[in-house]
Amino acid sequence: MTVTLRRVVASEWTKLSGLRGPAAIVVATVVVSGLLTYAAANASSVDPGFDPIDSLTAGLVLAQVGPLILGVLVGTGEFGSGTYRATFTAVPRRLPVLAAQTLVTAAVALVTALLAVGAAVVALLPPAASRGIALDLTSDGTPQVLVGMVAFLVGLALLGLGVGALLRRPVPSVVAVVAVALVLPIALVLAADAGTDPMAGAAGSTSLQDTVNTVVTLLPSGAGALLATPPGTGGVEGAPDLGPWGGGLVLLAWILVPLAAAAARLRGRDLTGSR
């Protein structure tokens, strides 16, 4: 009856599935994804050139918050409550706990993402039907967009986990991930717009605009946008078009850096609660 990674995974699953918060997040993410996608498609359905597939990713902007917070909850759950004492006296090598949390979070996020993307597809049906358009999910790179959306949502859950496990406190962790994933890209674009003279025209605004666009592309949301865009059509003006694989690698870096930092902190330091 020794400690094995498989057993630590079973333990982490027992912990996660016994809480109300994560279940509520899964439901909320799926509902938000469906509703927002429906609202966007419905609004566009009056346009002459309406293509329901164009609205497929419209729900992601808010649906991404769910996986982020799910990850933060798992990452900070030990330290906010004192459970870390029970957990790390049972698994004194410590790192298997973080590995198990990564696996369990990825699994729950994958199910959530599949349901959320499914809800987004279903949400396109009524607006498409209202214009007599049959939804085609098999052409124009749409399969890759669907896979990219799922990968993006799972990736954000793992980013949340890494930041939560690193910072150990829920509120700063949520603020950090929401700032990086949601606020920063919008703030940067707005700042660049404000700093650019609209009368100078396209030619005069290049350098600042390009820098901002490049930075935005390298943020998690930019990487996610690349993941969920057909190849050859992605990328923002002035920023390198990394393609879906490039976007995937950028997102992977956003996952691995906080997770590695969390692992280093977990392994090397004293364990104390956040309160």
């Binding site: 016994g18 809480l19 049972a90």
Partner: peptide, 24 residues
């Protein structure tokens, strides 16, 4: 080590089961 060693949102049974599972 401390009275508050269980997550407030988790039942006592689940808390103990999670510990037990690490060791089978």
């Amino acid at each position: 080590l401390d009275v508050r060693s269980a997550h407030p949102g988790r039942t006592a049974f689940r808390h103990l089961l999670a510990q037990a599972r690490t060791h089978g």
